[in-house]
Design a protein around this nucleic acid. Structure first.
Length: 603
DNA sequence: GAGTTTGAAACT
DNA sequence: CAGTTTCAAACTC
């Protein structure tokens, strides 16, 4: 468990002292650095799942509460009617045996199907309120936010989003903020809490709720896809996002998801105004949706219209590579293994999926979570982005990076033997990245960059031939038949944690693009100012963060686990600097890092 | 649409 | 950790 006391102590940083600085929040937040706050790795993970890292300490407790709530639901609170609902939702079929269910900490704000809030929620609320009270003498959040938005941008996207939602809606629609399905929470905080406290409570709830967010393609020429900018953006997509600018403008559609903190794969390239507008639109849409959880079925209306058999066709039509609508065709894995694209992408299977005996559905949430947990225990990075994109403008993380023509690399590298890395069998190729020394491929001819770094995308004759034969070339950009970048945009986000992301995903998300863009959105919208260059810079920094994170000493510990192979890149000099501390803001980013580490026992 | 190929994931 | 099996996507016909 986290250490509430410690949290409190940190929170009580003298306000006066903070004001001495230009950005009070800067110091303030620094004082709340999760690095020092989070002691329990395992819990860190749980907490991170709520993505309430922004003022970490402040929201830590709620996480705990949330955690408890989950436990109540699944273990101790059997008498709670709401639990019955959940239990009733359990599969008729016997779900696959899952290990460690106890470790499964679904921090997802639990809202039973019938809309009833669970007892856990009540407790959570209490705890939140308590925290609010304790924090009454701390700087006003709204002020802090506005004063230090610059700082917040580095924080959890969720945080930012949460604050944004909070600031924008707390005044007029608490009920909306509070998922319509959990109105019971409102009274708790509204009772006697001061405005700020109340608002904060609302904020907490907002974070826990799922907001529908239909992000429409900003490109008018593009056909809207079933998509969704979700918090649950697949990490791959996230990782890639920093550079997806022109590769994909995908808007995934988060079915079950969308937390009030949506993240979007917004492209940094977009003009600020556009971004702002888009966010506004999205915000409105979300608001009109009551910011409520969107059932997967609803979320995928568009997608679901296509028959399973058309899966591939639709997917391709949807914009190659912009496989916004991930659908699987699993027959034996029950969609509970990484074989399943949906599962691997961190999204629920949806109607259009052709899977058989699928357990990757909301009603099997527990099973899904447990399975994921299990998989992560085996490989902490199992759900991490497979491709890590480095910004051209940023310092290459290492030698290996420099040897890789592409600006991104596959985290683990491929192991192709016969495809020559020229087909989508190759994950590197599929992801549109070149092979690197991490790859063990044979006869690599990856058009995006061979393992030996001898060729680059599209420049390769063989690639040209490949393209010709596939009839998919025609562009100077050597994209794989199916634009790989947005490999796995989540459609229906797993309802994990407040933002429907599994702990690891969530934390990772903070490290990646999603976080970035979310933050950007936040800033854009609230500040209305941010130069394009700045955005890109941040994107780049995010990319670096990914690398740094993966290579950080702490990460390596886990990275080495089961799959130690190539989780860490050889060149990374983790001791050289503390990347995430290059600037004050980075600290916030770090707050979400504990995720991976948390997957393994303390050491 | 069925069958084959491929390589990641899972298993031993 | 290496070898083998399983699996589902990618691909071919």
């Amino acid at each position: 468990m986290d250490t509430p006391q410690k949290t409190v102590t940190q929170i009580e940083t003298p306000v006066s002292k903070l004001k001495v600085e230009n950005s009070p929040v800067f110091n303030y937040i620094n004082s709340l650095s999760p690095i020092t706050t989070v002691k329990s790795i395992s819990n860190a993970q749980t907490f991170s799942s709520l993505s309430f890292t922004s003022p970490p300490p402040v929201f830590t407790t709620p996480h705990v509460a949330s955690h408890k709530g989950s436990r109540f639901r699944s273990h101790s609170n059997s008498s709670d009617p709401s639990n019955k609902v959940v239990e009733e939702a359990l599969p008729e079929k016997e779900p696959p045996q899952i290990l460690n269910n106890d470790c499964l900490t679904t921090t997802t704000p639990r809202v039973t199907n019938d809309g009833a809030c669970e007892d856990g929620e009540t407790d959570l609320q209490k705890m939140c309120d308590d925290n609010v009270k304790r924090k009454s003498d701390t700087p006003d959040w709204e002020t802090l936010i506005s004063d230090s938005s610059d700082m917040l941008i580095y924080g959890s996207p969720n945080d930012s989003e949460a604050f944004r939602c909070f600031l924008q809606r707390s005044s007029d629609s608490k009920t909306r903020l509070c998922s319509g399905s959990k109105p019971a929470l409102a009274p708790v905080s509204q009772s006697n809490e001061p405005e700020s406290s109340d608002a904060l409570s609302v904020l907490h709830r907002g974070v826990r709720r799922r907001c529908l967010d239909f992000e429409m393609p900003r490109n008018n020429n593009q056909t809207p896809r079933c998509v969704v900018p979700s918090i649950g953006l697949h990490l791959n997509a996230i990782a890639m996002s920093s550079k997806d600018n022109n590769v994909s403008k995908e808007y995934s559609y988060t079915g079950n998801v969308k937390v009030g903190l949506q993240s979007s794969t917004k492209t940094p390239v977009l003009p600020s105004d556009d971004i702002v507008r888009e966010n506004e639109t999205r915000e409105e849409a979300a608001g009109e949706e009551g910011l409520e959880e969107a059932p997967v079925s609803l979320a995928l209306v568009e997608v679901s219209q296509s028959s399973p058999k058309k899966k591939r066709q639709v997917s391709e039509q949807a914009g190659e590579g912009e496989s916004s609508c991930k659908r699987c065709n699993c027959k034996k894995s029950k969609c509970l293994k990484l074989y399943c694209e949906c599962f691997a992408a961190g999204v629920y299977c949806i109607e259009p999926c052709s899977c058989i005996d699928c357990f990757n559905k909301p009603i099997h949430e527990d099973t899904v979570l447990a399975t994921r947990k299990q998989i992560e225990s085996r490989n902490p990075l199992a759900f991490a982005p497979k491709v890590i994109r480095n910004s051209d403008s940023t310092i290459e993380v290492g030698e290996d990076a420099s040897k890789t023509p592409a600006s991104a690399r596959h985290k683990r590298g491929c192991n192709c033997k016969k495809s020559n890395c020229l087909k989508k069998y190759c994950e590197c190729y599929q992801s549109g990245v070149g092979c690197s020394i991490n790859c063990r491929c044979e006869g690599c001819k990856n058009a995006f960059g061979r393992k030996d770094g001898s060729s680059f995308a599209g420049m390769d004759t063989e690639q040209d031939q490949e393209n010709e034969t596939s009839g998919k070339s025609g562009t100077t950009i050597p994209l794989p038949p199916s634009t790989p970048m947005p490999l796995r945009q989540p459609l229906a986000q797993l309802p994990i944690s407040s933002n429907n992301m599994l702990p690891s995903q969530q934390s990772q998300q903070h490290l990646h693009g999603a976080s970035l863009y979310n933050s950007q959105s936040f800033r854009k919208q609230d500040m209305g100012l941010m130069s394009h260059s700045r955005i890109e810079t941040i994107a780049e920094e995010r990319a670096e963060d990914i690398e740094n994170f993966i290579h950080s000493p702490v990460t390596n510990i886990n990275a080495l686990s089961p799959n130690s192979k190539r989780v860490s890149l050889p060149h990374m000099d983790s001791t050289e600097t503390t990347p995430w501390r290059r600037n004050g803001g980075r600290k916030l980013l770090l707050s979400s890092i504990p995720t991976f580490p948390s997957l393994t026992p303390h050491h």
